[in-house]
Amino acid sequence: MTPPNLAEVLGRNRREHRGSLLVYLMVDAARRRRLPSLVRGCWEAGVTGIELGFPFSDPIADGPVLQAAASRALGNGTQWSDLLGAIGATADELPVAVMTYANPVLHRGLRHACRAIAAAGGSGLIVPDLALEESAPWVRASRRAGLSLVQMGSPATPASRVRTLARSSSGFLYLVSRFGTTGRGVRAPGSPLRVLIGAAHGVCPELPVLVGFGIRTSADVTPIRRMGADGVVVGTAVEEILSGSTEPARLLRYLRRLSRAIGARGPGD
């Protein structure tokens, strides 16, 4: 069976006016056994896709919760092979994008790393420290491997630049909701998100726009949907639940509430 493709699933949801919910899970060698039931739980809760985070020693875009998760995963001996195994364990159920910093990918060679991710069943790559200006070789390598390379925008991005980002992005455009690192930060004054979402959709009407960083509750989701975003990404809140409890029901309840709020649809619905 061909694994579901992230760009296709998100694109279909956009065409059919459904929301999308992506869940960020940190790959951790010590959580290998737990992963299949987590993914199954996400699927049942109506999650659209999974971002598998590969830990890096110097995660400058991450807040304290995901920093701690990364250093714990590295302490547990998490390696690139664990990432490929995690993609394999996830991609049959839900589409997978890999989210990691530039160096662990570059260290393997861009083409080699992209091919390995695609061969394991992944369909996207998100690199928070890859600025648009540096991304040309990455766009080529990911395109050749059949991966979407997701560009990121932020409240600091002018509307003109967000159009360029949208044109260069594939799979979806990832908009950071606030000034800050994952899980925390300060809100931008006014509503730059609405303007940015509109600008991106203006030049790329088919490209889904998802909002992340600091999204926590259903109450956060509703205004973001109203601004025209296609969905959200949750990471820190999920990691907090996972590190606080091994009881899958809690995560399931949380994700169900969120996916209902966003009108999300998984690939299986």
Binding site: A61, L130, A131, L132, E134, G153, S154, L165, V176
Partner: peptide, 12 residues
């Protein structure tokens, strides 16, 4: 060299 940074820093 280059500038491998999160988008928020690019305009700054």
């Amino acid at each position: 060299g280059g500038a491998y940074v999160p988008e928020t820093l690019v305009p700054a």
